[in-house]
Amino acid sequence: MSYFERLGPSTFLPTPHVGGAWNIEEQHVAPALGLLVHAIETDRDARRDDGLVIGRLSYDILGTVRIESCDIEITVLRGGRTIELVEAVLSNGGRVIVRLRAWLMQAADTTSYAGTALAPIDPPEAFESWNPSTIWPGGFIASAEVRRKELEPGRAAYWVRTTIPLVKGEEVSRLASFAGLFDIANGMTVRADPRDLAYPNIDLTAHLFRRPVGEWLGFDTAVSFGPTGVGLTSSTLHDVTGPLGAQSQILTIRSL
């Protein structure tokens, strides 16, 4: 079974694997974030043949997502020969839920200059298996395999993968598949028990300086809570060859 099945050109039906962590009657937003990337890449490839690469994904999460069919609308906000800004909007029952704005950029061979000062993390085989369902309920969390090294509450490195296809019967890029896991970061090293305190993220922004490879997505994550009800989950993103980018999620902290 997949996370989504296509019902039409821009309509998708979620499966039980998208069940949420804060509320199992709602979608965990993570797979939908990957679905939006898949929609943008599909639209890009239908419009042009030069394979612009995605350098930034900026999501605003405007509400909760019911486990029912979703529609996606694509708009090119800034067209261009070498750079585009594209927006993908996911709606649920006519209500806008997530807005993604992605910068697409011309690919070029910069191999001779490639490198990063970001520190790598140990490979997946060096980490112990950890079951996140001991903390979080829902079909999405249950669908993910996690290997983790936690240094302290709110600070950990970990690897995540899933065997569940993003969209039934469709070829999906490694980036779209990984984007469907990005939002898991906010729950993999908790500063507070989610049964005592809620801290959902209302956005997610990822910057990527190369295309990902492999089946494992790695995170080096730090979670911060401020004194006025705002928090931040910051992660360096990795694949098995090393760092590939960074992401951040702003949190709204609320007593239960």
Rank of each mutant, 00 (worst) to 15 (best):
V65R: 02
S234E: 15
R148G: 12
W216T: 02
V160S: 02
A107M: 11
T236A: 05
R191V: 01
N186K: 02
V167P: 07
V37R: 07
D49W: 15
F127Y: 14
E150R: 00
A46Y: 04
I250L: 15
I250N: 10
L90E: 00
I54A: 10
M105A: 13
Q247M: 06
L208N: 00
E5F: 09
N201W: 00
G226I: 09
T82A: 08
R47D: 00
G245Y: 05
S143D: 07
R99E: 07
L217Y: 08
N23D: 15
K168G: 13
A185L: 10
I97V: 15
L36T: 01
P16E: 06
T233G: 03
P124S: 15
S69I: 09
G169M: 02
I253K: 04
N186S: 13
T233L: 01
A117H: 09
T111W: 01
D220N: 12
M1Q: 04
L237R: 06
G138C: 11
V76N: 04
I184L: 13
W216Q: 02
E171M: 06
L151P: 05
L166T: 09
A246D: 05
R47S: 04
A88N: 02
W103K: 14
A144T: 10
F4L: 11
S69C: 12
R195H: 08
E215Y: 05
A176V: 04
